Simulated assay, not measured.
Amino acid sequence: MDWDAVRVRLIPQLLAARVSRVTLTGGEPTMHPGLLPIAASFREAGMSVGVCTNAVVLSDEQITMLAKLEAHLNVSLDGFSADSHGVFRGRPAAFAETVENVKRAAKAGILQGLLCTPNNLAQDEEYAELCRFAKEQGATYVLLNPLGEMGRGAAPGAQKLRRPDDHMRNIARLTLPFAADLDVVHIRFPNDDKPLSGCEAGTIIYVFTKGEVTVCPYLVFAARTRVSQHPDTDFIVGNVWEHDDIAARLDAYRFHERWKVGDNPTCGGCSLNASCGKGCPAAVVAAGERIGAVDTEQCPVVPRQSRMLPVVGAS
């Protein structure tokens, strides 16, 4: 995104839409020449700023300036060795670089959390080491999100790198003890008995670099998979570079009035119905169903043999 366009066009529309917190992501935002002035512009508008980064090329200037801006970093770390994180990222040296830069960010007081995609290149115990490292560096959370058919999971062969369900359960067991010191978030781990969470579409919006504004990026990613029955325009409210009324479009969208999650006989007759949020509609869309169908990969009630491959990947 062009810095001037962000300042002149994007920020006023986000303010009108009552946005108070912004996360800059990519791609790799630390490679964008306008990262610091863009972050400064958001802060001048009164918004808090976070940056999601792989931290490989994070510079001293960026750390210093982000600290002055009272911004924070969320860093991707997908294992705790060069043979896991480094290979997963395509360059073994990336592990040492990321770890060193996480330490530098922590020392500057701008490290917020670690974002992790468990994968078959890592041993289960590495995720406990990763949580221990996060605790030592003063992070507030570790978010673990398995590979799927959206995001990184859309790459050819990515499903071969997905950690099997029994290992995901073991990773949950190994990392839960750190919950006393960290917010350890397990996204779409195997679920055997819990009601599903609800959908937050519309409360966390996403702006693509080409200007499309969506109520949920995962719904757009899902709609762009080959089996989707929904066009991506079902979830895009407008384009910030073309439309002047993005705030009004967001207010008028009302996801849960347009689409009824869990609108199927299985959910309707389920004993968990009243307490269940029906899961992720993006997962339903990516599985080739219309919104309203069962989120079968997470539902603890549907027969296990009918469950589909996981569909929501890490950002």
Results as ranks from 00 to 15, higher is better:
H85K: 11
V227L: 08
G46C: 08
G50H: 02
S228Q: 03
I110C: 04
K68A: 14
R307K: 14
A314Q: 11
W241S: 06
H186V: 00
I63C: 11
V215L: 00
V261M: 15
P190I: 10
P281R: 09
K278F: 14
D181N: 05
E297T: 14
V57R: 14
A179H: 10
T23P: 01
K194Q: 15
A283R: 14
F88C: 01
D193I: 11
Q123E: 15
F88A: 04
T30Y: 04
D295Y: 02
N264Q: 02
L35E: 05
V185A: 00
R89G: 01
F88N: 00
L73E: 02
C280R: 07
C52Y: 15
A82I: 04
K278R: 14
H32Y: 11
V22K: 05
G109S: 03
S59L: 00
V6S: 02
A248S: 08
M150H: 04
P92I: 08
C276W: 07
D245F: 01
G202R: 07
G90F: 09
Q229M: 07
Q298G: 08
L14M: 09
F80L: 06
H85D: 11
L147V: 08
A45S: 09
L15W: 12
G268S: 06
G288Q: 07
L250W: 02
M1R: 12
S84D: 06
G153H: 02
I236R: 01
F208E: 15
E100G: 14
P265C: 03
P303H: 03
L272Y: 10
R89W: 03
G268C: 05
A223Y: 02
A108E: 06
A179D: 10
